[in-house]
Structure formats: structure tokens, C-alpha cells
């Protein structure tokens, strides 16, 4: 069959315009990737990709650069933030959709969305000036007192609780990603068909059992989607973490150690990079983050897609 082509100028212009708009995405993605490779080339050829990843030294004076510490820092803070944020977000979403009185629903939802609208620099400042002192004075000594002497987990509560550390950064990060997970979880929970809930109630389930066994499984792929978005956000978050993580180039051995992440290193050191190799290594760090985010997000999307296809037909 011959494709019907419109000759109307307005139509053709409009489709061309939408095509261009869509292309902007692809072109900028490719452009960023290419320029990152180009700029990081010097460092890449000097250290080699794997050597760069596994070197735990970051020494501008000796011009030795390795990404191991910021990589580990990025993963630890991201995972901790997700561990804190996921249960709280699910609690928020379930409360809003199933439990809270209808008068409270709208104000609560708006408050959570406002939380997402706060610029990250404000989280950073709040973290540094308000939250970190509270952590170092009350919460961290308390945690140390309770958990510090328990075998195996004791060591991760050692050290001087200064408040500028892995735990504080992860908590601030988790507060930032809670709105993403909870609002997406709320939306998908609302999609659970009423009749499905009713049929669960009709075989004699309690409210909690309906939530746990019907609503959450039904909406799990949407919730995973929300977690993925939060994951991407947490991997790349810079300003909030930069204020409260300390930018120390050493592996953290305890919750109360300062360390660094890829983004924190970048934010702190771009202005100081005085040699080409230094600058190029920073670019290589960004390339690494770009690749990691890309891989993690596509993998997670793949899982969600596959899973939802299997269970939701």
C-alpha cells in the first residue's frame, strides 16, 4: 500500500517540528557522550579504563588519579539512601491512598510534591548547618552507644561522630528521593482496580492483608519504576551530598567516616584542576558516572519491562 502523504504545508511543518524536537534528545545525548570521551582521552590513555577504576589513589600532586574511592562512596550513599527511603516512601504512599482520612489526602500529597521542588542546594545547606550538628551531637553518639559494642556490626558505628559523614549524607539524600518514590507509588497504587480489592476483602482479608498481598503486588512494577527514577537521582545528586559528605579521599569503614562520591569530587575540584591530566581525569570520572547511570537505568528498566509483561499480560 502506498503511504498517504499530506501536501498540506502546516501539517508537514508540524511533523517536521516534532521530529526536530525529538532529535534534540538524541543529539544532545550523543554529543555529551562524545565530548566526555574526547575530554577524558588524555587520562584514559594514561591510566587505562580498568586501572582507573581500581586505583584508590587520588593525588593531584603526584598526578595519580583513580576512581575507586568516589565509586565506592557513590554506591554506598546511593544504596543507603534507597534503603532508608523505600520503606518510608511506601508507608507514605499506602497511608495516603488507603488509610488517611480524605480531608488529609490533598494537603499531604502537595506537601510531598513540594519536597521534590526544593532545590538541592537548600538541602545541602540545611544538612550542613542544621542536620549535621543534630546528627553529631545526639543521633550518632546514641547509635554508637547502642550498636557500637555489638560484634560484627559494631565496627561500622565506630569513629568520631562529626556529623559530616556517610550516614548524614545518605539520610539527606533519602529525604530528597522520598518524594519521587512515594508519589509514583501513590499513583500506581491508585491504579489498583477497586473490584480487585473488594474481591480480596470478600474472602475475608483484613486491610493490612489487602495492602500487603494485593495492592503492593499489583502495583509493584510501578513502584520499581519510581525506585529507578530515585536511583538515577541519587546516583547523580551533587550539591546536597557535597555539603555533608566531607570530600575525603579514603574508603569509609564506618557510618561516621567522611568520604567522597563521583559528583562531590567533580563539584569540589573542577575549579582547582590546574593540569590537563587532572582536568581530563575529572572528565573521566564524569564519563564513568554517565556510563554507570546508563547501565543501571537500562538494566532496571529491562527488569521492570520483563516482569510487568509476565504478570500483567
Amino acid at each position: 500500500m502506498k503511504q498517504v502523504k499530506t501536501t498540506n504545508f502546516g501539517d508537514r511543518f508540524f511533523s517536521f517540528f516534532t521530529f526536530c524536537a525529538a532529535m534534540v534528545v538524541l543529539v544532545s545525548l550523543a554529543g555529551i557522550f562524545i565530548s566526555l570521551i574526547f575530554e577524558s582521552w588524555e587520562s584514559l590513555s594514561r591510566f587505562g579504563f580498568f586501572n582507573f577504576i581500581f586505583t584508590d589513589d587520588w593525588n593531584p600532586v603526584k598526578e595519580v588519579f583513580g576512581a575507586a574511592i568516589p565509586l565506592v562512596g557513590t554506591f554506598i550513599t546511593t544504596i543507603l539512601a534507597l534503603l532508608i527511603a523505600i520503606p518510608i516512601s511506601l508507608g507514605i504512599a499506602v497511608f495516603i491512598t488507603e488509610i488517611c482520612p480524605s480531608k488529609l489526602k490533598a494537603p499531604l500529597s502537595i506537601a510531598i510534591e513540594l519536597l521534590a521542588a526544593i532545590p538541592s542546594i537548600i538541602y545541602g545547606m540545611w544538612g550542613l548547618f542544621t542536620f549535621a550538628p543534630i546528627m553529631s551531637e545526639y543521633i550518632e553518639p546514641g547509635l554508637q552507644f547502642v550498636f557500637g559494642d555489638i560484634p560484627f556490626i559494631g565496627p561500622i558505628f565506630q569513629g568520631t561522630p562529626l556529623g559530616i559523614d556517610v550516614l548524614t549524607a545518605s539520610i539527606v539524600l533519602s529525604i530528597m528521593i522520598i518524594p519521587f518514590i512515594s508519589s509514583i507509588a501513590r499513583d500506581t497504587i491508585l491504579l489498583t482496580p477497586q473490584v480487585l480489592k473488594e474481591s480480596a476483602y470478600s474472602i475475608g482479608t483484613t486491610e493490612w492483608e489487602v495492602i500487603k498481598d494485593v495492592i503492593l503486588p499489583y502495583s509493584k512494577f510501578g513502584i520499581y519504576g519510581g525506585i529507578i527514577i530515585a536511583l538515577g537521582r541519587a546516583l547523580g545528586e551533587t550539591m546536597a551530598v557535597a555539603f555533608v559528605l566531607g570530600n575525603r579521599h579514603a574508603f569509609p569503614t564506618s557510618f561516621f567516616d567522611a568520604t567522597s562520591t563521583i559528583t562531590v569530587t567533580l563539584a569540589n575540584e573542577f575549579t582547582e584542576a590546574d593540569s590537563n591530566l587532572y582536568m581530563s581525569s575529572l572528565y573521566l570520572l564524569s564519563l564513568l558516572l554517565f556510563v554507570i547511570s546508563f547501565i543501571v537505568l537500562s538494566f532496571a528498566k529491562f527488569i521492570v519491562h520483563k516482569g510487568s509483561k509476565k504478570w500483567n499480560g
Partner: peptide, 11 residues
């Protein structure tokens, strides 16, 4: 027990 208009298998 109750059975509804549309089938409602759990996920």
C-alpha cells in the same frame, strides 16, 4: 463469599 461482574484474579 462473593464473585464479581469481572473476573478478579490476584496478581
Amino acid at each position: 463469599g462473593m464473585v464479581f461482574q469481572k473476573p478478579t484474579p490476584f496478581p
